[in-house]
Design a protein around this nucleic acid. Structure first.
Lengths: 188, 188
DNA sequence: CCTACCGATCGGTAGG
DNA sequence: CCTACCGATCGGTAGG
């Protein structure tokens, strides 16, 4: 792992636990065992790191979704696959997922607008599946925007507690969540 | 409204939109049309404000829940009432809810531990209802901890987009979410 | 990668 | 509530 990748990784865990604004370059340097000024041989700025983390995660979510997108399955099954893909990305790197979800607002323009566009596109992909399910009669909902936001936020807290050594695998977690969201608490 | 309450309110909207750490006392003073130093005639410190907002909201959630707690209803109905109570508090003051949900980690000890205890108690109250529902056969789930965390996080994103002038009232939103979570996407 | 340092800005205070 | 200011710390740079 290059020094730059090391910096990104350590910064990610710090941004996640303290927040971007409350993390100082001296905190980061201390954790890496070097002086603060030395960081700048490898990175351009503090926000430079944040940008890489946010956009890398955005790419991962989009790529994972694209493998699901064009499968010829009924909407309910497609949604299950999309949920599983989302959970897989979330659990693969929880600190990075946390930064992606909570620290993106510290991006400055034009990165911020670009990021928001990507996020919107991703949500739109989910909405498309839900619309399909409504059209086919699989789903009995009216407001697909509302549903998708609820759905995604019920997945996105995962990064806060997920630990690789836990008893459930990412795919088991995804199945649990899919069942809960598709069938409800009563008919689980 | 006293000057202190005014400060708390304006600070809440700033903490919500920029984050606690990225909000400066000078930002806050500017918004209020006074000098930064003048704030300290009314408040003890920056964190002093955060503490009041966080604990006030924690109290509101607990109070709202307590009115539901001892009603003699089946678990599913009790859960509906608890969800409605939660949504009502969330939507009554979205910026304060946002600070409560996202900025509490900037509390320092001993407030931080005290806050975490309160939050844990609140989650435990929800778990109790789900356990009741499992015992009575209303709910077909095994892991009530997992369910409650999913449930709460599917509600807690509300503060990000809810606007009082929107077409759905808090109680309509609560009903929509209750139906989705209890019956699932398929049998809505 | 370090030493040495910069200008800016931070939360907060004294004295009125 | 303001003026004037404090010590500390911030992100970042120059020169080696």
């Amino acid at each position: 792992m290059s020094r730059k990748e090391q910096i990104d990784q350590v910064a990610t865990t710090l941004f996640k636990s303290r927040g971007f604004a409350a993390t100082t370059m001296r905190d980061l340097a201390l954790e890496l065992g070097i002086e603060a000024g030395s960081l700048y041989s490898h990175i351009k700025s503090k926000e430079d790191i944040l940008q890489r983390v946010c956009f890398r995660m955005a790419d991962e979510f989009n790529e994972a979704f694209n493998e699901v997108k064009n499968q010829d399955e009924p909407a309910a099954e497609k949604l299950r696959l999309a949920i599983a893909a989302h959970v897989r990305v979330l659990t693969k790197n929880p600190p990075a997922a946390g930064v992606f979800l909570n620290e993106w607002r510290h991006l400055s323009e034009p990165s911020l607008s670009q990021f928001n566009t990507m996020r919107h596109t991703y949500e739109e992909s989910f909405r498309e599946i839900v619309r399909e399910g409504i059209a086919s009669g699989d789903f009995q909902v009216s407001d697909e925007k509302f549903v998708v936001l609820t759905l995604l936020s019920s997945l996105n807290w995962l990064h806060m507690w997920y630990k690789p050594e836990g008893k459930m695998s990412p795919d088991e977690i995804a199945e649990f969540l899919s069942n809960l969201l598709l069938n409800g608490l009563k008919n689980f």
